[in-house]
């Protein structure tokens, strides 16, 4: 299975330009025989939308631009980020999995970073679910950026039997290191390594690049295999298109060696969580 990570720099608030960028990239990776292409968080709109959120929002089942991408998924699976409007006036920071000319799954970002440089909960409604879904490559699960830094969320996809955990991100770089990367880039890789190893699943992380209001999105997209080995790593803060071959049989080999999935006991976790939630106080 060949996966492409589109480490792009979306145009803030310009759906038409971003749609073109998506379609061009899809065409490019299709020619290179990719089966799945992944775009970053809010790839159709840009990240720092603030009061542009209602204008950027769309209903994926109806919007003509989104339908072009759905149509493009007849020959290649696509993951992308967009602002989703549900009901009337509820806006979500969402990720969609498109395949075979259909929307297979939509995940709504549940953990909205708000504090410091982040203000997402001022503008978005929070999603409530982490679900796995069937794809032609196995069970997949989606997360959006900060979702991935909750190990509870990672656990839910693992408990749901995920073979492939796909994270789309718009993570700004922060902090200096001695190396050629922002300090925060280590945090994402640390989680990628841990989640892939302990879930015996592939973890595919696609982060954006470019600047919005002086924030540098850090890129550094990566893939870890089900044994926690890093397969590819895109450069820091530079546009790139990374292709990697994922051997689906590696999931089985990892699970033969490490029986974390077989040994999981979601009922124990649930029981304990119910007690914690039932007793919780401010």
């Amino acid at each position: 299975m060949k996966v492409a990570l589109a480490q792009i720099s979306p145009h803030l608030g310009d759906l038409r330009k971003n749609l073109d960028l998506h379609l061009e990239t899809i065409e490019k990776v299709r020619r290179r025989k990719a089966h799945l292409v992944i775009f970053p968080e809010l790839s159709l709109t840009g990240y720092t939308l603030m009061d542009l959120v209602p204008e950027a929002a769309l209903d994926p089942a109806r919007h003509p631009a989104f339908q072009k991408l759905v149509a493009a998924s007849r020959t290649i699976d696509i993951v992308l980020g967009f602002v989703e409007e549900r009901g009337k006036g509820l806006f979500y920071n969402s990720a969609a999995y498109l395949s075979g000319g259909r929307i297979i799954h939509v995940h709504r970002k549940a953990f909205l970073p708000t504090g410091g440089m982040f203000e997402e909960a001022k503008f978005f409604a929070a999603g409530k679910n982490f679900r796995t879904f069937a794809t032609s490559f196995g069970k997949a699960g989606l997360m959006v950026c900060r979702d991935f830094l909750s190990y509870g969320a990672g656990y839910l996809l693992f408990a749901g039997g995920a073979d492939l955990i796909i994270v789309i991100s718009a993570a700004p770089g922060r902090g200096m290191t001695a190396g050629d990367a922002f300090a925060t880039s280590r945090m994402w890789e640390l989680m990628g390594e841990a989640v892939s190893f302990f879930s015996t699943a592939f973890v595919v992380y696609c982060n954006r690049v470019g600047f919005e209001d002086g924030k540098a999105f850090a890129g550094g997209s990566f893939i870890f295999d089900p044994s926690g080995r890093r397969l590819v790593k895109a450069p820091e803060a530079e546009e790139d298109l990374v292709l990697a071959d994922l051997r689906i049989e590696d999931i089985r080999s990892a699970r033969k060696r490490w029986t974390f999935m077989r040994d999981d006991r979601p009922e124990v976790i649930l029981h304990s969580l119910q007690r914690i939630v039932g007793n919780h106080e401010d």
Partner: peptide, 19 residues
């Protein structure tokens, strides 16, 4: 406090150009 100057140069040049 210490910076990796080549990395900072890369980020700042990209910032100037893109903005």
């Amino acid at each position: 406090m210490k910076i990796n100057a080549p990395f900072v140069e890369k980020i700042l040049c990209a910032f100037i150009r893109e903005e």
